[in-house]
Design a protein around this nucleic acid. Structure first.
Lengths: 236, 236
DNA sequence: CGAAATCTTGACCGATCTCAACTTACGTGG
DNA sequence: CCACGTAAGTTGAGATCGGTCAAGATTTCG
């Protein structure tokens, strides 16, 4: 649970670490070098070990977290205590946003899935930057738009589609997003996929077996799925 | 389907209509009069009759819509064609945001539930305003944060709670938001509530009848519900 | 190599959807 | 202001989807 600070930018010569960190963040990478430097002043680097929590539901929220290296999983607990995986952050993704623009507490949990390097920006400092460099706001607004769009799409799927269909759509999206030809690799364990899709590992396993029996897909290894008949899959 | 333009701001003396329109919009109402005038230059007023569509899924999206008077319902069709009500816009609320920051098409439908007055701002003009007055961005970011938060909360509920619990939570939230004492008034028909909660009118009707039989609530009229035992309701 | 986690498969049960009939409320026009 | 037609809401019966519990297989990692 211990948090180690890395690349403390006040230490001599350590600033370079931030260069790598900040410049790979989409919301900042359009700025000029001078502005970039100013941002680096506000950014702190932190590393988390696998399994460490970045924040928990109920924690006060006062920073934005940007993933520099590693992978972070965001999940929620429902009112009745069940866990649902909300999303996985990869390098360049950020979180903490929900509470950045109002005083509040986190509603979700953020856990490092592997050893990860995270950059944090204090909420107040970020607001100052946004006021000074309005283009950053547009970037963030754009990111929020996308996330909101996909969250509402997801909500509608949960509200109207059965599990079988949600799984098929998930596979189709994977194929679209990061498919190499016809094969997709699950970005997380099947257990986590089940949580993400609002079902159980048992049901996921059964449905995938069905898809395979019907010739729509082929499972090889534990995380690789070849899509044999995308159209058939989507007709389910 | 006919759209009538009202308060055309180029016509003499018609600007006053905008004053009322713009000033009641939370994202603008912190600005000074001079800035407000500039914004009014970019805003157009439009009225929609009950049942008219403001936009449909697939339409190109290039404006932000702000409800001045009336009520607008936003809903989606899932991949399999089922409808889900996403939210209801009341005066001061806005929509169209998803596509404002990237070229894209609407994924949802916006329909006037009653005769409504809407203010629209062209996407390009809005971006100029955001760059000029960064505080507007912060307001919108704040609004997006809230909406994202509630959308993800909703997703988690769909993913993990059964219908009974979702209904109970919905009632509890209504009570919290706009409850006068112990009585809530449904903001829409039960049919729409069912759609919003991702269930059917039949199931909603049954569960409410159960709640009533168990003494948690009392239904009077078609849209009024008195909460007799909130704790009992939430334990369901 | 062994413990722990993940994944799979089976059997069962319960929640919710569907279809259908009926009742009630609402809006329009006479 | 009432009557009618349409939409909304209710209630019942049956079918199905998906969750739970349990056992076994497989994988991973120390």
């Amino acid at each position: 649970m211990k948090v180690e600070k890395t690349c403390p930018h006040h230490a001599d010569g350590a600033g370079r670490h931030h260069q790598g960190c900040v410049s790979l963040v989409p919301i900042f990478n359009h700025l000029e070098p001078g502005q970039m430097n100013e941002i680096m002043q506000a950014v702190r680097g932190v590393t988390y070990k696998k399994g460490e929590m970045m924040y928990r539901a109920g924690d006060a929220s006062d920073s934005m977290y940007i993933v520099n290296k590693g992978q972070v999983k965001i999940y929620r607990l429902s009112e009745s205590g069940k866990e649902q995986l909300v999303r996985i952050l990869n390098p360049g993704d950020f979180t903490g946003e929900l509470a950045l623009f109002k005083q509040s507490v986190h509603e979700a949990y953020a856990e490092a899935m592997v050893d990860s390097q995270i950059c944090t920006i204090n909420s107040f400092d970020l607001q100052q930057l946004l006021l000074k460099y309005p283009t950053i706001s547009l970037k963030i607004l754009n990111e929020f738009s996308n996330r909101l769009e996909s969250s509402e799409r997801q909500t509608t799927r949960f509200a109207t589609e059965k599990v079988e269909t949600r799984i098929a759509l998930f596979l189709a999206e994977l194929l679209d997003t990061e498919g190499n030809g016809k094969t997709v690799q699950l970005p997380m364990s099947k257990k986590d996929v089940a949580s993400y899709l609002g079902t159980t590992p048992e049901t996921l396993s059964r449905r995938l077996a069905e898809f395979e029996a019907e010739g729509y897909i082929e499972q090889t290894g534990q995380r690789n799925i070849t899509i044999l008949d995308l159209d058939g899959l989507l007709l389910v």
